[in-house]
Simulated scan of single mutants.
Amino acid sequence: MKIWGRANSINVQKVLWAADECGITHERTDVGGAFGGNDQKWYLDMNPNGVVPTINDGGHVIWESNSAVRYLSAKYAAGTMWPNDPGQRSDADRWMDWQLSTISEPMRICFWGLIRTPPEKRDMAAIKRAAEDAGRLFGRLDGWLEGRKYVGGQHFTMGDIPVGCFVYRWYALDIERPDLKNVRAWYERLTMRPAYAKHIMIKLT
Rank of each mutant, 00 (worst) to 15 (best):
W112K: 04
S104T: 14
W63S: 02
M96I: 12
N47D: 05
I200Q: 01
Q13W: 06
H26I: 10
E132R: 02
E21K: 06
V31N: 04
T191W: 02
A68S: 12
A92W: 03
E132D: 14
M81S: 02
N38W: 11
I62H: 01
I109V: 15
I161P: 00
Q99C: 10
I3F: 09
Y76C: 09
P48N: 14
W17E: 13
D93F: 10
Y196R: 00
N56I: 12
R129S: 13
I3H: 01
R169G: 08
N11P: 04
W17M: 11
M124K: 07
M107H: 13
D160T: 06
G139Q: 09
G87L: 14
G36D: 10
G153Q: 11
A126V: 06
H199D: 08
N182W: 04
N182V: 09
L44I: 07
R184S: 13
W186T: 02
P119T: 11
V12H: 00
E120H: 07
W144P: 08
Y43H: 04
G79R: 03
Y171T: 13
G79A: 08
N38Q: 15
A172Y: 03
V52L: 09
P118I: 10
V52K: 01
P106Y: 12
H60E: 12
I103D: 05
L72G: 03
T117R: 01
W144L: 08
D57G: 04
R177G: 13
R177T: 14
S65L: 13
R129K: 12
D93P: 01
C110M: 14
W4A: 05
M201L: 10
E105N: 04
G152R: 00
V151P: 00
Y43G: 13
T29N: 09
R148L: 13
K203Y: 03
I103L: 15
W170P: 00
I200N: 03
W42I: 08
E146D: 15
P178E: 10
T80L: 04
T29E: 15
G23H: 12
K149S: 15
T117P: 01
F35G: 07
E27W: 04
P86M: 08
D160M: 02
D97M: 10
H60P: 01
D57T: 09
A18P: 01
V52W: 02
L141S: 03
A34Q: 14
R129F: 03
A77L: 07
Y171N: 09
